[in-house]
Design a binder for these strands. Structure first.
Lengths: 233, 233
DNA sequence: AACTGCCATCTGCTATTGCAGACTGCATGA
DNA sequence: TCATGCAGTCTGCAATAGCAGATGGCAGTT
């Protein structure tokens, strides 16, 4: 397998001319996670289509994707409503994300080539600089890019799409985690460095364990993940 | 609830009540995993719609779901082709499934009520009987039902849908795993019992670890998961 | 013969229309 | 007062038609 061969899936990530369905999906998703559409809100394909100035089909397609993501629930011939996801649901999604991020790290360790590792190292350096400068938002950006690079390195469509869906859930919680305490920034940095070293060593199990622990701990700092992880006998 | 009509999650509705899109999705998915549509096959919305005797919209919706599952790749204005998933891809999906099954077990441990635990125990007993009778097919059925019950117990839509998609990938490999060696049946039975005991004890970490190990080992027996995974004693 | 530009035809994408099931509110009857 | 039938309306679902982009073959030129 040549590294020069471009994968067709990578293209749709940054297509300047997105389809209407894709735009509707992102817009709805953001509206839901930001609270503009609270749980229980009824969403009609037609009314939403007219509100967005498009046809009903793209809206329907967006709602289908949101249903797969667990953000809305559709009752046939009844309607579509926004699903409720309180703190405990977000904690669940966080746990799921930890598991999937771990799997992604394991696959990336077995598959990442030198170019991918170099890109990861660059992002790690950017994160180091932002940490030294004490700019949490830049750290957060570099942090997300770091994770996204690992996802991409797996070259697994299912994993990439699933993690993209999960990312929408706890996006704000993740930012909050980094802003929670100043000590958090260097800690996340150290963990990222440890993960990258595992990837460079092509050690799937180490990469998975470290990534998993990293995500779980950041969830704890973010206030999610109640007492499921800590079980002092 | 009575055991007279125990529907597995996926088989609860009969052909007539399902939407055309759902039917097209399952039919295409099965055709792909069974090899009737080999990797690289070009799929046209229109021609497939006429072949199935339905309109193009349900077909399109089915293709979108398959794309989310990673089974087809769509290039805008170009066409839709069946993605390639050889042994190494199946091994990847197996690893991902192990991670998600583990997460499901953890959530189920924290959430399952007595009724769900009783249903699991019933399935375990059915599996025990089938094992004693030496009927791999019945064991496989009970096995899948056991896992499906755990998924359902999580009450997490995203997890349920993701695992349902993953199940399609290695369905045949999983059956093969149980038929591989007679010793495999009681082993899977013991592991299931251990998982259930962790669920009953409301121990998420134990449940996750045991479930994860169970899935990984069954993948090894099934011939997937090459040499990337080394089992420490 | 080799290159180039055009056009028929394919593709996925979107819009429009109509359908059947399910809810709502009012009129009717006891 | 309470129950009940019945439109009118809303819902998601499906079919049809037409759009723009991409492809491949063919004619024309060099």
């Amino acid at each position: 397998m040549s590294a020069a061969a471009p994968h067709p899936v990578e293209r749709l990530a940054e297509e300047d001319t997105l389809s209407l369905a894709e735009r509707a999906y992102r817009r709805l998703r953001d509206s839901i996670v930001q609270g503009a559409l609270p749980a229980g809100s009824r969403i009609s394909e037609r009314s939403l289509a007219t509100a967005l100035g498009i046809s009903a089909q793209p809206v329907r397609e967006a709602l289908r994707r949101l249903e797969q993501d667990g953000m809305v629930v559709t009752l046939p011939r009844r309607g579509t409503v926004v699903a409720e996801f309180g703190p405990e649901r977000q904690a669940e999604m966080g746990r799921i994300r930890a598991a999937l991020e771990g799997a992604a790290a394991a696959l990336a360790a077995a598959r990442a080539d030198d170019a991918a590792l170099a890109a990861l190292d660059a992002q790690l350096q950017a994160m180091r600089d932002a940490t030294a400068a004490g700019k949490p938002e830049l750290v957060s950006e570099a942090n997300e890019r770091f994770h996204a690079l690992i996802h991409k390195a797996t070259d697994n469509v299912f994993l990439i799409r699933s993690l993209a869906a999960l990312r929408a859930y706890d996006h704000f919680g993740r930012v909050r985690a980094l802003n929670a305490t100043p000590k958090e920034l260097p800690r996340a940095l150290r963990e990222h460095a440890a993960i990258l070293s595992a990837l460079q060593a092509k050690d799937p199990d180490a990469a998975e364990g470290r990534m998993r622990a990293h995500v779980l701990r950041s969830l704890e700092v973010g206030g999610l993940l109640p007492s499921t992880r800590k079980r002092p006998a």
